[in-house]
């Protein structure tokens, strides 16, 4: 589904990712872990198409095609979803209106008519249950005044509405208390199926107690330096990142 080859990315003339490779297949869950400042968020943003990053080398192949030239909305319509580390507050745009616009633009892209209002609203209601969201969506602006937990729940709620094929969740566990973490993780798990894939980017192992990855990758110095199964996460938790650094730097 996703194949990243020899990717080299810079921002403000500073190389962040270099010689980065990953293969993600449908039905898989990948965890990307690593210390701060190693390019985790850069990776997420580059896949989603954020402006300001320069791809110097390599390619991102999604569903068999390079997406480097695609706009963020084109990638989203093809099924890529980015769960933001810091979801943006948008005063004045209600969650309902936001999701309605997104769903209908994606449908239009697929040659479908807009979803009938009644159907849309009952769909939202169903999706809210997945993350135990009790926010009144119509009256609340996107993320405005939300707690950290509510913001992250809202990300997973949007993921549930948009049903992406490839979800990249950037530090979705940060800022969550244990209850919110459980709810968010449960949401992610329940959206998983054999046709979609998830990349979980995280700093800590604790999210992986709830979301069991098929692969764990360690990102360091802009590239993946170690790949293993879920037990690698536990090892990292125990030993910290230093042993990896030592291994690499030698």
């Amino acid at each position: 589904m996703l194949s990243i080859k020899n990717l080299e990315v810079s921002i403000d003339n500073k190389v962040i990712l270099k010689n980065f490779n990953i293969e993600v297949k449908a039905g898989e869950v990948h965890a990307i872990m690593g210390p701060n400042g190693t390019g985790k968020s850069t990776l997420a943003n580059v896949i989603a198409g954020r402006e300001g990053y320069e791809v110097l080398n390599g390619d991102i192949i999604y569903k068999g095609k390079s997406i480097l030239e695609s706009k963020p909305e084109e990638r989203a319509r093809e099924g890529i979803f980015l769960g933001f580390q810091y979801p943006v507050e948008i005063p004045g745009v209600s969650i309902t209106n936001f999701m309605k616009t997104a769903v209908n633009e994606i449908r239009k892209h697929k040659g479908l008519d807009p979803m009938p209002a009644g159907e849309f609203l009952s769909m939202l209601k169903e999706k809210k249950k997945i993350v135990e969201m009790n926010t009144t969506l119509a009256s609340r602006s996107v993320n405005q005044g939300f707690s950290g937990g509510e913001k992250k729940k809202n990300e997973i709620f949007q993921m549930a509405v948009l049903e992406p094929q490839l979800a990249i969740l950037d530090e979705t566990d940060s800022g969550l208390d244990i209850d919110a973490l459980r709810i968010v993780a449960h949401g992610i798990n329940s959206l998983k199926n054999k046709d979609n894939a998830t990349i979980v980017i995280t700093h800590y192992q604790r999210l992986l107690d709830y979301i069991v990855p098929d692969f764990v990758h360690v990102l360091y110095g802009g590239r993946i330096v170690k790949t293993g199964g879920k037990e690698l996460a536990l090892e990292l938790e125990e030993k910290g990142y230093d042993w990896i650094k030592q291994e690499i730097d030698i």
């Binding site: 706009k71 319509r77 943006v88 633009e105």
Partner: peptide
């Protein structure tokens, strides 16, 4: 905010409108 909206599939024009 523009990127946030666009990352959900909303085109640049509609994002600006919103």
């Amino acid at each position: 905010a523009m990127f946030y909206l666009r990352s959900r599939g909303i085109c640049e024009h509609s994002s600006r409108m919103l």
